[in-house]
């Protein structure tokens, strides 16, 4: 593996991302909604006595659950299939670089672009909260940023897997949007409905939640905010009792798995599909 090649590709991917209108649209939408959320949270803080960072963090979780996976999945889906469709993938791989270097460069470059978008969104929101003189736990806010980055990169990894396996960018984006719908649906409404219809016990409910990276993020974010999961009902209480102190590393480990496993599968899918 030639890391100089990876670095060159990372730089190019970052540059491309900041010229990609979809990426800019997502980044602006996320920042604008975060700022709006913070404004309303902090404006109401005086009358309700809720700390700015904590209140905003709670509101941000739902926003992140919707927008961040959408960003990661669609950008990942467009990446490889888009270049394959344009023919640039054939030309790039005719140069003295390996497919592993190409995929790693693209993945890390897009991950950094997503991280930059989230840091800007969180940063501006944090400045607004501080400017409005509202207090709260800054570390909780910072931890939520790190969790959001993990969720974004995990979503990117899933999008990347789709992109490596299909020929057309439109197909890849369609599949990514479908996956996003499934992940969001099985977050709340789907899980509630399933548990009622299937009459599944709390243990199975938790297992269902833990296979969905969005739910893993939600559990970790709420744990970050509250130090327990009572707000999530019986499944949350069960998770906290069953895993105790190991729950936090388990959730972080699961998010990392959602980054690494789809990326590893994407490299295999790319080997099988090739440049065409």
């Amino acid at each position: 593996m030639d890391f100089e090649n990876v670095l060159i590709l990372i730089q190019k991917e970052l540059r491309d991302a900041f010229r990609n209108r979809w990426f800019l649209l997502y980044a602006i939408a996320f920042t604008a909604l975060s700022l709006a959320l913070a404004w309303f949270s902090v404006s109401g803080a005086g009358s309700f006595g809720v700390a700015g960072f904590g209140r905003t963090t709670a509101g941000l979780i739902n926003l992140i659950l919707l927008i961040v996976p959408l960003m990661g999945l669609t950008l990942g889906a467009m990446s490889v299939a888009g270049e394959r469709e344009k023919g640039t993938l054939v030309y790039l791989l005719a140069q003295p670089i390996s497919s592993a270097e190409l995929l790693l460069g693209k993945f890390v470059g897009l991950s950094l672009a997503l991280t930059a978008a989230l840091v800007i969104g969180f940063g501006l929101t944090g400045i607004l909260i501080a400017f409005m003189g509202s207090g709260g736990d800054f570390m909780v806010y910072l931890t939520l940023l790190v969790l959001s980055i993990l969720l974004a990169v995990a979503s990117l990894s899933m999008g990347f897997l789709i992109s490596a396996a299909v020929k057309k960018a439109a197909t890849a984006v369609g599949l990514a949007l479908f996956l996003w719908l499934i992940l969001v649906y099985f977050g709340d409404l789907g899980l509630m409905g399933t548990s009622m219809v299937m009459q599944i016990d709390v243990q199975q409910l938790l297992a269902l939640a833990l296979i969905n990276p969005l739910q893993v993020f939600k559990l970790a974010a709420v744990l970050d905010l509250r130090d327990n999961l009572e707000v999530l009902g019986p499944a949350g209480i069960y998770a906290f009792r069953a895993y105790g102190q190991t729950l936090w590393p388990l959730l972080i480990g699961l998010l990392f798995s959602w980054v690494l496993v789809p990326f590893a599968l994407a490299t295999q899918a790319f080997k099988k599909r090739g440049v065409l």
Partner: peptide, 21 residues
């Protein structure tokens, strides 16, 4: 030795696939 081989080759493709921007 695909990378070493590609270092020895200058390739001009049929479809000109550069990044337009």
């Amino acid at each position: 030795q695909s990378k070493e081989v590609r270092r020895q080759i200058g390739f001009v493709p049929q479809e000109l696939s550069f990044h337009d921007d």
